[in-house]
Design a protein around this nucleic acid. Sequence first.
DNA 1: TTTCGACTGCATAGAATTATGCAGATGAGT
DNA 2: ACTCATCTGCATAATTCTATGCAGTCGAAA
Lengths: 284, 284
Amino acid sequence: MQMSEASAWLTRLFEGHRLTPTQRRIAQCLIRRPDEAPFLSSVELAGLAGVSQPSVTRFAVALGFDGYPALRRRLRESLRDGRAAAGPDDAGPPANVYQRAVLAEIGHLRQLAAALADTARIEEAGRLLAASRPLPVLGLRAAAAEAGGFAYFAAKVHPDVRLLTEGGSVLADRIEAAADAGASALLCFALPRHPREAAEALAVARGAGLRVVTVADSAVAPVAGPGDLLLSAGVGTGLSFDTACAPALLGRAVLEAMCDALPDAQSRLERFDARAAERGLFLG
Amino acid sequence: MQMSEASAWLTRLFEGHRLTPTQRRIAQCLIRRPDEAPFLSSVELAGLAGVSQPSVTRFAVALGFDGYPALRRRLRESLRDGRAAAGPDDAGPPANVYQRAVLAEIGHLRQLAAALADTARIEEAGRLLAASRPLPVLGLRAAAAEAGGFAYFAAKVHPDVRLLTEGGSVLADRIEAAADAGASALLCFALPRHPREAAEALAVARGAGLRVVTVADSAVAPVAGPGDLLLSAGVGTGLSFDTACAPALLGRAVLEAMCDALPDAQSRLERFDARAAERGLFLG
DNA sequence: TTTCGACTGCATAGAATTATGCAGATGAGT
DNA sequence: ACTCATCTGCATAATTCTATGCAGTCGAAA
C-alpha cells in the first residue's frame, strides 16, 4: 500500500489507541483521503465514514483532542508541513541578504511565468498600445526607470512614444495633449510606493478617453481603475529598496506583444540597425 | 516572500475587479497567506485583515461568489490542485515566448545568486561608492533605465548622486566636473549593445582619477578597463529586445551594500518617510 | 453648503457545526 | 437468565459561523 506523508502521520497517531469498530471506520476514512480530511466538517466526515456525527466527535476525544475542531486543526497543520517540506527541495540556508533577495525574485518570476500561460490579456495590451498614436508611457518616481526602459525600446518600433516621468501640473497637460494628438491608450507602470500623483494622472487619462494599461506590483493596486487592463507581477521587498524585476520583465513582454501587433516593427528595427552600423554607434 | 501556485491563482482572480480599500486589505491578506487562507473562517480572516466580518462576506460576493463559503471552497480546490501539480516539477513544455523569456531570466538569476555567495566584491563596491561625494552614475541608451532606477533610490541615502544618461560632448564635461567636485568613484551600467560613447566616457573617468565600478552583462564586457571593479549578470535575449533583470537586481544589491557602508543611511530614510507622510506623497 | 451615493462597522438574525444527555443494543461475566 | 459495562445513534442544546438591515462617515458633485 502506498503511504503518503499525511496518512503515515495519521497512522502513527492512531497507533496505541484502543479504537472501537466505528472509530476504526472513521480512521480508515481519514487515511484514505488525506487531502480532503482537513477540510471536512464532522457531519461530512460522518457521512463519508457511514457513522453518526456524534461518533466523530467522540473519536476525536478518544484520541486525546479537546474536540473535533482540535483534531482537524492538527490535520491542517500536518497538511501544511507536508506541503512546505515537499516544495523547495533546496533546503540549504539562504546564506546572505543578497542571495535571499535574488531567490525571492526568482519566486516572483516563477509566478509571472505561470500567469503568462494565458496570453490573452497581454496580447490585448499589445494591440491596444500598438494602435495608439501617440503612445504615452507613464511612470513616476520609482517606476520611472521601468517606464524609461520600456519607452527606449518601444521607440524603435513605434513612431511616437511619449515618456512621462515627471509629475506636477505639466503632467496632466501632456496627457491631454497626447489624447488631443490622437492617442487611444496609455501605458502606466505603477509600483510601490504609489505616488498620489500617479492616481491623479490616471484619472486625467481616463477622463481624456484613453484606455489605461497598467503594469503593477499587485492585482489590487490602489491606482487601478475599473476599465483598466491590469497586469501584475510581484515586487521584491527583501532589500532596503524594492526590486521590480518581475514588473520590468512583464513590461518587456507587453513590448513584445506590441511588436507583434505592429506590422512594420521588423522593418523599423532593421532600418535602425543599418543606420547604427553606418554611424558606428555600438562597439563590437 | 515565496509565492506559491495558490497565490498566483488568487492574483489572477482579483485582476479586473473593482475593489474597495477594505476589500484590498482582505485580498492582500489572502495573497500573503496562501497556505492558511483555505482554512480561515470569515471571522478569522477579518481579524487578520483588520476589518469587520461582514466585509469579508461582502468581499466574497463582490468577487462573484455566492458567499464566503463558496470563495473558501475555491481556495481549497486551488490548494489541492497546486499540491497535485507540484509533483512533476516542470514537466510541461515552456509554452510561449513570454514564458520562455521569463524562464531564461530565472536561469540568470540563479547564476547571480550563486555568484553572490561571495560578498567581498559587492561589499567593496558598496564602500567605494559610499565614499564618493559626489557619486556619478552612468548609463547610456538601454542602460539608462537601470542607472536611473539605481540613482532614484541612491539619492535617498547618499547626499549627492549625479545621474548621467545623456551622451554627447556634455557627458565628458559632467564627469570631469564630478571629479573636480571631489568624486572618487563612478558607477557604470554597461549593457548590450554597448555604445561607443560609454567606452569613451569611462576613459574620461579613469583619466580624471575616478575608480570605476561597472555592472555589466558579462565578465568580458568590452567597456571594462583593467583597474575597474566589474560585476556581471546575464542578459536575456529571448525577446526582440534584451531583458536585464539580473543586472538590474545586481545594481540593487550594490545599492544595498552602499547603504550598509553609509552610517546615516537609515536616519535619512526615516526622515524621508516622515516628510513623505507629512506631504501625503504616497497612497495608502 | 447641501445632497447623494458609496463604504463600513455594529447589531442581530439565520444557518451550520459541534457537543452532550439519553435510550436501545450488544456482549461478556456471574 | 441476570447484571453490567460499553457502544451507538437520535434528539437537542450550545457554540460558532455567515448573512443582512441599519446607521454613521466620508468624499464627490451640484
